[in-house]
Design a protein around this nucleic acid. Structure first.
Length: 82
DNA sequence: GAGCTGACATGTT
DNA sequence: CAACATGCCAGCT
């Protein structure tokens, strides 16, 4: 089980309407300081089972998104997470 | 195993 | 408030 797999699993388990920060995901995955790695992994993953838009920065800003940063914000609004 | 990379975080300037 | 600098660490070559 690599860190990547754990990150994907964690993100896939984020409930609708909720958001986690990259740090939180990294922490749950087992490496609290590997927030960057989390991003690197999410950008490569296009699996619909992984709601990467629910993962945001620690300061509350959305961060980046493979389908467009605007889309990420919109999705969060749709789900009521924002 | 070494080096480079980067969807981050936090502190300075 | 924005730009810059440093630390951090797993993935990839």
């Amino acid at each position: 089980m690599t860190f990547k797999e754990r990150v994907l699993k964690v993100v896939s388990q984020i409930p609708r309407g909720k958001t986690l920060t990259y740090s939180q995901v990294a922490e749950i995955a087992g490496s609290p300081k590997a927030a960057r790695v989390v991003g690197s992994i999410l950008k490569e993953n296009f699996d619909p089972k992984i709601p990467c838009h629910r993962v945001i920065r620690s300061n509350g800003t959305p961060g980046e998104y493979n389908r467009g940063n605007k889309e990420k914000i919109r999705l969060l609004k749709e789900e009521g997470a924002l």
